[in-house]
């Protein structure tokens, strides 16, 4: 049973994508979707899932929903507000710089979700990542400072706090 559990997360993902993309819950689709989910999961789970108890944890899933809501509303609103202010002002108060932002997450999904959270908010883009030094190189439209603490607080802290509850 323990062994089989490893294959559940990818199977759920594949089955859900198949059903949603097909737009049908006929028995034909449920049967094909189920076979496909098992087959793809058997092949690909070892590359995708390292800790299945994390992937199947309801608490972590709720944290993910909470983070998604926070990200899509509050975080995006704040970032847009800042960029809109810059765009509409006469002086164009930009201070662009590519800054080093240290990250603390160890889990690769947490790191990637943080990076994508930074990129998807306007004003900041992850240009590169250095996994050995655990840092992102971020282009920041208004760099408040160049030292690691300032950049971490300004760019990443909020995201990493929310995501660590999901992935770490």
């Amino acid at each position: 049973m323990r062994v089989l559990k490893k294959y559940v997360p990818v199977a759920i993902l594949v089955f859900a994508v198949y059903i949603v993309f097909s737009g049908s819950i006929s028995s034909y689709d449920i049967i094909i979707g189920a076979f496909l989910a098992v087959a793809v999961s058997l092949i690909s789970s070892k590359y995708i899932v390292k800790d299945e108890s994390k992937a199947l944890s309801l608490r972590r899933f709720l944290h993910l929903v909470k983070y998604a809501l926070y990200y899509l509303t509050i975080a995006e609103f704040k970032a847009h507000k800042m960029v809109i202010k810059i765009v509409l002002s006469r002086e164009m108060p930009v201070k662009p710089a590519i800054v080093r932002v240290p990250y603390r997450s160890r889990n690769e999904y947490a790191v990637v979700a943080s990076a994508n959270s930074i990129t998807n908010t306007p004003g900041t883009i992850v240009v590169d990542i250095d996994p050995e030094k655990s840092q992102f190189y971020v282009h920041w439209i208004y760099a408040a400072g160049l030292d690691p603490e300032t950049t971490y607080i300004g760019v990443l802290e909020e995201f990493e706090k929310g995501l660590s509850k999901v992935f770490e």
């Binding site: 993902l13 594949v14 994508v17 198949y18 979707g33 989910a37 793809v40 690909s44 690769e108 990637v112």
Partner: peptide
């Protein structure tokens, strides 16, 4: 790493579609 992890997740989705 960013592209690799995202691609890893996209491949099963690609197969399903």
């Amino acid at each position: 790493l960013i592209v690799r992890v995202v691609t890893k997740l996209l491949i099963p989705i690609n197969i399903a579609i």
